[in-house]
Design a protein around this nucleic acid. Structure first.
Lengths: 308, 308
DNA sequence: ACTGTTTTCTGAAGCGCTTTTTTATTGAAT
DNA sequence: ATTCAATAAAAAAGCGCTTCAGAAAACAGT
């Protein structure tokens, strides 16, 4: 029997026969496709998540389609529509600019959802949660122990949920330490945003001795801005990132950052969708994504001159 | 009429109607989907190309599916099969580890192909060519003028066509300048490969005064390795990248590299596929991708002690 | 008013598969 | 041999759309 199967497959290949997946999905009333929507495919955090999601999905014999929202609302809409039109078997949403309207729409069609840090409460949705507060606290504690007191924060362009979480965690942690949260400079989640924010921070007086960036890309942009103005990191000013992308690891100086395990995130999302799709009615679980401080070389003792 | 259309669409939305794209593709005997296959989605060169490809494809009202080969043959095979099964309207192949067998297979089904730097000669294929020789020559000339004579090269893991092109161009250019090509260290196209290669280069005596990396990621890995051993870039050793990814721009020191215009590449590929798909029988064109040297801060005059 | 032509509308056919139903086949039990 | 359940094989019925053929309607020309 296995050999028969093998022969059939061999002949199929020889005959160049590739089953039409459209017909298959149509007839089976169910596609073998998972979707994943991310904010920014150029951000290594997301590309790593996409890769591990794909790898795991392929293991379960799904195809995957990926859409990017680029932090833009109309692309978010298109992405959601596309998932609906393609009749995906499940969709992972790793982007906070996804409106509840669409989430509900997807849930209404009984398509399993795995969302990263979006707080979408629905029986058809699995939540992948990150404890930002803990991450932010670890970062700031680390800086605090190094003697930093004027710690600034650089956030993202919009007030998306998870971007906001990081900001709120910053404020909460600062206050818990009896420090005054500094006015926030906002970037746009990427390097150039960080660069611009970095320039603006340099105008603040007294200058912060440390800057916490909302992600690694922003941190890199900050450092570039600082370097251009003759400031050394970490000698003159400390900078931290968030996400622990491969970028953080190879950047010089190696970034102090928070590991969010993008790879585990992607895998977990794929696993969760698979599980939900084979056993409908399973109560949606909630996963906690591990978070851990990675101490690099971009943070150092608060410089004496600056604190003086 | 337009208002009627608008009303219909509004009602469709209200009724939560999303046309089944599988049924549509099946009935129309033609999908509205373009495929793109890349080596490594984490490499910013590719992610940028994917993004611009998607953007342009969406403008022409195509959906796009992206597959990654990860430089692995079995994934390459799966990616090709998937394109065939999904009955894509055209496919862009931005990965040199794609066997001619599969290219022919795709061409045989009359699916337009746009391949980047793959030398696939077929009437159904558009070629996007890069003049590596020119790029490499510009890089090496630049180093030569800075006084470098012992210029090493760090290549990729396998002998894929385009990776090989860069290598051959290195050798040709060196010889043209009357310099001796040094033995090549091979990376794996990413940072950690560059890092390992960097360590091995440090063992070579006399040490090269400059290293040409096959891409930006490798260059970053190299620099990390050099830094760890106390070498400063560019004071002690110069390093160049290739691709001019955003990484190169924000890295400290800003990388000297070669811009391959990944965004234009992606757009051109999408345009070419679109054009081929609407007018079958058009003779396949050939596009030349512009290439240009970007001088950064990772290259400097050959250090006197090293050349001595 | 009548035929010939073009345009618009309606309904049926069919895309390439999976699934369900029907029919044929076998095997055991009477 | 005959009946009935169990199993295998073959045929039919869609899945949700697009397309195409044919019917109906509209428009001219004589």
């Amino acid at each position: 029997m296995p050999e028969t199967r093998h022969r059939v497959l061999a002949i199929a290949r020889k005959l160049k026969y590739y089953p039409n997946s459209n017909a298959r999905s149509l007839a089976a009333r169910s596609s073998r496709t998972l979707g994943i929507i991310v904010s920014d495919i150029e951000n290594p955090f997301f590309s790593l998540a996409v890769r591990s999601f794909e790898a795991r999905a392929h293991r379960w014999r799904y195809d995957v389609i990926v859409s990017e929202t680029n932090y833009e609302l109309h692309l978010m809409r298109r992405a959601a529509e596309r998932m609906l039109e393609q009749k995906v078997r499940g969709v992972a949403i790793l982007t906070s600019e996804m409106s509840p309207t669409w989430l509900n729409e997807i849930a209404r069609q009984d398509i399993p959802i795995a969302c990263f840090d979006l707080d979408f409460v629905n029986k058809g949705a699995t939540n992948l949660k990150v404890d930002y507060l803990s991450g932010m606290r670890q970062v700031i504690d680390h800086l605090y122990q190094l003697g930093h007191r004027r710690i600034a924060y650089v956030g993202g362009r919009r007030t998306f949920k998870n971007i906001l979480s990081r900001h709120q965690s910053y404020i909460a942690t600062m206050e818990a330490l009896g420090l005054e949260p500094l006015p926030v400079a906002n970037g746009n989640q990427t390097m150039d945003g960080g660069y611009v924010a970095g320039k603006s921070i340099l105008g603040v007086s007294p200058r912060p001795t440390a800057v916490v960036a909302m992600n690694d890309l922003t941190a890199v942009g900050l450092i570039k801005a600082f370097n251009e103005c003759g400031l050394r990191v970490p000698a003159d000013i400390s900078v931290t990132g968030f996400d622990n992308t491969y970028l953080a690891e190879y950047f010089v100086p190696r970034l102090t950052t928070v590991d969010m395990h993008a790879d585990i995130l992607g895998e977990t999302a794929a696993d969760a969708l698979h599980e939900m799709s084979i056993s409908a009615g399973t109560p949606a679980k909630e996963y906690k994504i591990k978070i851990e401080l990675i101490i690099g070389k971009s943070t150092g003792p608060a410089s004496v001159t600056a604190t003086a």
